[in-house]
Amino acid sequence: MTEASIDDLRGIGPVTRSRLEDIGIRTLDDLRSTGSVEAYRRLKFMLPRQVSLNALYALEAALRACHWLDLPQDVKAALQHQGRIIDEALRRGGVTRCAL
């Protein structure tokens, strides 16, 4: 059985697919193992002005095989909370990868 490509994910357009590939996510299994929030965090830090909360909704919806508008309200609220945490980290300048 072959892994599902991100090309096959519902609600993920060509621009987001390309960006996901840039951060090493090429299959549904890659997205599952990374998780929607971490994938969004990577995208947001890579392109802070071009990646919006809608991308996080789309990533989570793709994992659930539904349209982002059909995500339960509690899931959307949790994603919004995570988005605020990521935005705050971005404003602070993120975290360095190593101690100097």
Rank of each mutant, 00 (worst) to 15 (best):
D22C: 10
D22K: 01
I23A: 05
I25G: 00
I25S: 02
T27A: 06
T27V: 13
T27E: 13
L28V: 11
L28R: 02
L28N: 03
L31Q: 05
L31I: 13
L31Y: 06
L31C: 07
S33F: 08
T34V: 14
G35T: 11
S36A: 15
V37C: 01
V37I: 15
E38F: 08
E38K: 11
Y40G: 03
R42F: 12
L43Q: 01
K44V: 15
F45I: 12
F45C: 06
M46V: 08
L47G: 07
R49T: 13
R49E: 15
R49N: 15
Q50R: 07
Q50F: 10
Q50H: 08
Q50Y: 10
S52C: 09
L53V: 14
L53E: 02
L53R: 02
N54R: 00
A55L: 06
L56G: 03
L56A: 04
Y57T: 00
A58V: 03
A58M: 06
A58L: 10
E60W: 01
A61I: 04
L63A: 08
R64A: 14
A65W: 11
H67T: 14
H67S: 09
L69T: 11
D70E: 14
D70S: 12
D70G: 02
D70N: 07
L71D: 02
P72R: 02
Q73S: 15
Q73F: 04
Q73R: 10
D74M: 01
D74L: 00
D74H: 00
A77V: 11
A77K: 04
A77H: 02
A78L: 05
L79Q: 01
Q80G: 08
H81D: 07
G83P: 06
G83C: 14
G83T: 10
R84T: 15
R84F: 11
I85L: 12
I85H: 08
I85T: 13
D87F: 04
